[in-house]
Design a protein around this nucleic acid. Structure first.
Lengths: 344, 344
DNA sequence: ACGGAAATTGTGAGCGTTAACATTCGAGGT
DNA sequence: ACCTCGAATGTTAACGCTCACAATTTCCGT
């Protein structure tokens, strides 16, 4: 009560109302709204004034109906609670907004083919002009690949699918870099705490690690597998702390590295003096772990932005030559969790 | 090439096409689509078959135009890269989806009045039926309060605004709880690392802390102020580590607590033996800090969900009696970063 | 002052749905 | 067999906008 609109509950003004007030045709109103040429300045001003006076807002549904463009893009993401997806989503949204698009989000709990298909269908039924799928899991990527959709879809992930335009991170490269750095410091080999087996990120990082060890002729220890969470890293760490000859561990992400550090700390294994640890992602907190974590930085925001640019290319570019695959290379960030091995 | 649709680039089928194929009027198609009564079962089946055969999809813009409902809700959030906003967003999206709504997101960089107003306007111009504003800053809340908007808006934050329906967390309560717990353990007083001054969360947590100290007759030390980041917590920690008589610190969030722990560790002050530390939020990683962090848990996902329910109430409930303010109480989670003080 | 092109404005027809009302069909009662 | 009434279906008119084209003006050069 009080502020509530009091009886003046007229219907929203429409273009015709503006036209009448400005003394022009509705088409002229449409013209000034869309910045069409051939409108005399004073006419334009009159229309603009009428618009302001009535506080007129164009009806987007009507516009979408006739133009067949919704100004909306869809994003299907997986657990956008995680830092990576959340940041990508953020990057996508920023880029979309500055390109004049709205973003409609669907965050999946499970990333099997059916869910992805369903989500994309739902989005397309709503009328989105294109979709970005944040598809980190193997199943999702193949689902996207065989997506029978009439709207353009791009994926952001790490695979090598060529069916679908995609932006990906050089996970193998980054993991190799990290591993090599540890070997160069004199470590005989490097242990690995991997992510879930069905994530492409996991697979690629593990492969980068493995190949680097093999190339260096280093033994390849058994992999510990986590689920990205600090909790799983902790449990992996408990197991690793049991092994007597570990001097270096590469974790597939920073959160697991956090758990690992905790487990090593509890096990009385000092980092980096006894054991060096490297993570992946460079989340903002990584620099404040105990000790500060050496990790492989990837810029999720940039990733999202690039994905959106790719989608816009598909969308607006009638010309085909827009690149179908963008790759972003991560970068090793050195901090105190890594040290040269001391030969005993 | 290959999978691409080959020449069969007919226009999308519309309701009339389905009607013709099924041998009924378009209105009957509309009826089965909307589950209207008085459709003979075999007619319905025929229509359904036609729909399937043509792979017909209703045009949402046309529907929105005539029904004046877009099935879409808007969310304006602040830096959805942070754990809190991201989780709320996630909760909102889940709840919205299961209620049959789409979610259109706008993530702001700055939360001044103008930005919020702009974001809400943009969303409403797009035709959203309601908006959730994740408005943690003072400026945002007042902006929301004086939002001249024709769409229902609910806020999720921590203020006591009554203008706008809102769901909030008992920040004062949680902070008080944490502080009292420390006092009960024998600490003479509790230091505080606060969040940014213009955030309501900061204000409320600080106030909860201060009042509890005052009520206990404990001295109120000067506040250290951070910006929620681990980095700022670290710097606050460096300063605190200088103070000789600190035995307990309450951080306004877990990330700053992480930085604080690092600084104390570097300064050779052991936690919890010399100094007890409590955080706020209970992010998933908090249990894996060194040492595991005692903190005040708030369920962001639930928060988002409740906000959405509130919005739906505003939206669909023609009855006014839907509550205008939902409050969620956080809960103290005890972990090893806290210990009784040892009298010297 | 006149023809014609360019600039400016208006008119009418959809876009694909749903809402409102009209029509037809079929069964039961007398 | 006739009338009534509800069930089932069809018809027509919006919804608010843009597009295509028509109509009107204006501005030049000659």
């Amino acid at each position: 009560m009080g502020i509530e609109s009091a009886g003046t509950e007229q219907r929203q003004p429409v273009m015709a109302d503006v036209a009448k007030l400005a003394g022009v045709s509705h088409q002229t109103v449409s013209r000034v709204l869309n910045g069409a040429p051939h409108v005399r300045p004073d006419t334009r001003d009159r229309v603009l004034a009428a618009i302001r006076e009535l506080d007129y807002r164009p009806n987007s549904a009507a516009r979408a109906l006739v133009t067949r463009r919704s100004q909306t893009l869809g994003v299907v993401s997986f657990d956008s609670t995680l830092y990576g997806p959340a940041s990508m989503l953020d990057g996508i949204e920023q880029a979309a907004r500055s390109a004049g698009y709205f973003v409609s989000v669907t965050s999946l709990r499970s990333l099997d083919g059916r869910s992805v298909q369903e989500a994309v269908d739902r989005l397309r039924d709503q009328g989105v002009e294109g979709v970005v799928v944040i598809a980190p899991q193997t199943s999702a990527v193949s689902a996207v690949a065989r997506l029978s959709s009439s709207v353009p879809v791009v994926a952001v992930g790490s695979g090598n699918q060529t069916q679908v335009p995609m932006v990906s991170v050089g996970n193998r490269f980054g993991a190799g870099d990290a591993t090599r750095h540890l070997l160069d410091l004199g470590h005989r080999t490097v242990h690995h705490v991997a992510g879930p087996a069905n994530w492409l990120e996991s697979k690629d990082r593990e492969e980068g690690w493995r190949r680097t060890l093999e190339a260096a002729g280093a033994p390849v220890p058994e992999v510990e597998r986590g689920d990205w969470s600090a909790r799983s890293g902790y449990h992996a760490g408990l197991r690793i702390a049991e092994l007597p000859d570990v001097t270096a561990v590469f974790c597939a992400n920073d959160h697991m590295a956090l758990g690992l550090l905790r487990a090593l700390n509890e096990g009385g294994r000092s980092v980096p003096e006894e054991i060096s640890v490297v993570g992946f992602d460079d989340i903002p907190e990584a620099a404040y772990f105990i000790p500060p974590l050496t990790t492989v930085r990837q810029d999720f925001g940039e990733l999202g932005k690039r994905a959106l640019e790719l989608l816009l290319g598909e969308l607006e570019g009638d010309a085909r030559p827009s690149p179908r695959h963008v790759r972003i290379q991560p970068e090793l960030v050195l901090r105190r969790s890594v040290a040269p091995v001391v030969r005993r």
